[in-house]
């Protein structure tokens, strides 16, 4: 028994080490955004100057607004289209259904480098070109499979008898969907929407290939800035991004259990 207890404590200690590995760089990066030295020199001197200069950086601000707008539109489109598709995949049985479900995996499984360059080639070829519209087209396609998977998981817990009951009480198809099915899957739809927002807001690779100067998103601007050289201003904007996306995921976790536990 003693060995078991020692092993358990070692295990707990190991988890703490892992969390240190995962969070220390992020914490250091964030701390440096409040440090006065432009060359990241210690000792630490508190300042919020970098955030102030960030608020003067029109290019970054424009890119931030683009990112937010694209993420919101992506969320709206992909949750509506994705929920519709999940409902169809849940309700109906037809030939080729397995194929349709399998087709959701390429956008998730194929490296973004390949999808991104392929989109660039195709959009260029058909005249859509690069820019915000192209980025939006790409983001929705990347977010859709996540929405469908999350909403479908929620639908698995739905009892079809409820729909039958409503129907036998005289409700038509539209009423059944709006009054019975939709309220049940709402947590799944919200979680799917938050996933979609995160996928879009954090997306870098696909946006990178589809952006043009003036029509870019925040991660693309940050990448360009990093390649020019490190400045605490990048730390400041990175800190904001990381806080926003972590807050979003915490919110998602409230609606959707990742661990598969009930």
């Amino acid at each position: 028994m003693a060995t078991t207890r020692i092993l358990e404590w070692l295990g707990r200690f190991y988890i703490v080490l892992l969390l240190g590995f995962l969070y220390l760089p992020i914490i250091i990066m964030a701390a440096m955004s409040f440090n006065a030295s432009p060359f990241y020199q210690l000792p630490f001197e508190w300042t919020t100057d970098w955030y102030a200069s960030l608020s003067q950086n029109d290019q970054l601000i424009a890119a931030t607004w683009n990112s937010i707008e694209i993420a919101i539109i992506t969320t709206l489109i992909s949750t509506v289209l994705g929920s519709m598709a999940s409902l169809a995949l849940y309700r109906y049985d037809f030939r080729g259904k397995k194929v349709l479900q399998a087709l959701l995996f390429p956008p998730i499984a194929i490296p973004w480098l390949i999808t991104g360059t392929a989109m660039l080639i195709f959009f260029f070829g058909v005249g859509i070109g690069r820019g915000l519209i192209a980025i939006l087209l790409g983001h929705v396609a990347l977010a859709l499979p996540y929405v469908i998977v999350v909403v479908s998981a929620r639908l698995q817990t739905f009892a079809p008898e409820l729909e039958e009951a409503a129907r036998s009480l005289g409700a038509n198809q539209w009423q059944v969907t709006m009054r019975v099915t939709l309220p049940w899957i709402t947590p799944g739809v919200i979680a799917g929407g938050l996933f979609a927002f995160a996928v879009s807001f954090d997306q870098f690779v696909v946006s990178y290939f589809l952006s043009t100067p003036g029509q870019t998103t925040l991660p693309v601007e940050i990448y360009a800035a990093i390649r020019k050289g490190f400045t605490p201003e990048i730390n400041a904007v990175s800190t904001i991004i990381i806080v926003v996306s972590m807050a979003l995921m915490l919110l998602t976790a409230r609606f959707f259990k990742f661990g598969g536990e009930k």
Binding site: I242, M246, M249
Partner: peptide, 23 residues
């Protein structure tokens, strides 16, 4: 703790790579 472990994974990858450059 499970949530803490997978949380960084859902934050921006570019920013996390940049944070290693700091370290």
């Amino acid at each position: 703790i499970f949530l803490l472990v997978i949380l960084p994974f859902w934050s921006n990858g570019l920013v996390r790579i940049f944070s290693w450059a700091m370290v």
